[in-house]
């Protein structure tokens, strides 16, 4: 493993709060999930939230009105109509906002950063977050989890949200979770409904586990991609050029190496 190119997220320096990204397409319930997390953990953790709305500060206002955190702990940053850029190619605005929030409300345990709803390819840079949740919802269609992509495939946690709506939209939640688990090669998946206490408890437990791992220095930020087409030598020494966007990633190799070099 080459040396970590993101020294600010190096596992040996957990002096600052855990930074947790929440990404996923528009309307899957990212803000609602954050409100759920805050409600479940506000009594035991000090939390701050940064939103990346595209056109307005509506997400920030929604979270403030949810009454789960002091309004001052929820801040919005502008993204110049490029929500994808703000969490990946140029994380400056979010990084500065996260630093300010951590300093203004020290000591914080977690800063949650909500991406502006973008598309299936938008994931956070490990220069910004230590861990990330990718959110889908059953109402978006049971086939979305099968379509894959960097967030679905390799985010630290995939949440299949709004499971309470499944009967109304004709989606088989178990099948959707099975598809997602297959696409993720065993990485964590939670089928969530804010009205299902067991699922909220599972989300809460996942976050506390990540936080403990981060504080112990064991957690290493992963980069889900997106990845450009790249080259692998196969067993016969013949090269294979492929892209992870085309869904042909049924092979095991260390994606982090490819990004870290």
């Amino acid at each position: 493993m080459p040396e970590n190119p993101f020294p600010e997220t190096a596992p040996t320096t957990p002096a600052r709060p855990l930074r947790l990204g929440v990404a996923g397409p528009v309307g899957v319930g990212k803000s609602s999930l954050i409100a759920t997390v805050c409600r479940a953990l506000a009594a035991e953790l000090e939390i701050g939230v940064i939103t990346n709305d595209i056109y307005t500060d509506e997400d920030a206002r929604f979270l403030r009105s949810a009454g789960v955190l002091e309004p001052e702990r929820i801040r919005a940053v502008e993204t110049g109509a490029c929500p994808h850029t703000a969490i990946r190619d140029d994380v400056t605005a979010n990084l500065l906002a996260a630093e300010d929030l951590a300093a203004d409300f020290a000591p914080l345990d977690v800063v949650i950063i909500e991406s502006g709803g973008d598309n299936l390819t938008a994931t956070f840079s490990p220069a910004l977050v230590d861990a990330q949740i990718f959110v889908l919802d059953v109402a978006g269609g049971g086939d979305v989890a099968r379509k894959g992509g960097p967030g679905i495939g390799r985010a630290d946690l995939l949440v299949v949200n709004k499971t309470d709506l499944a009967p109304h939209v004709g989606v088989d939640v178990e099948q959707m979770v099975a598809d997602a688990s297959a696409a993720r090669e065993g990485r964590a998946v939670i089928a969530l409904s804010r009205t299902d206490e067991d699922s909220v408890a599972a989300l809460r437990g996942w976050l506390l586990d990540v936080l403990a791992s981060y504080r112990s220095g064991a957690h290493v930020a992963q980069d889900p991609g997106p990845m450009a087409p790249h080259f692998h030598a196969d067993e016969d020494g013949v090269g294979v050029l492929h892209s992870h966007a085309d869904g042909d990633h049924a092979h095991a190799h260390d994606h982090d190496d490819a990004v870290a070099r």
Partner: peptide
């Protein structure tokens, strides 16, 4: 503009 200095959020 590809230099990551935060400028993309300004007009």
């Amino acid at each position: 503009a590809r230099l990551p200095g935060g400028g993309h959020a300004h007009s």
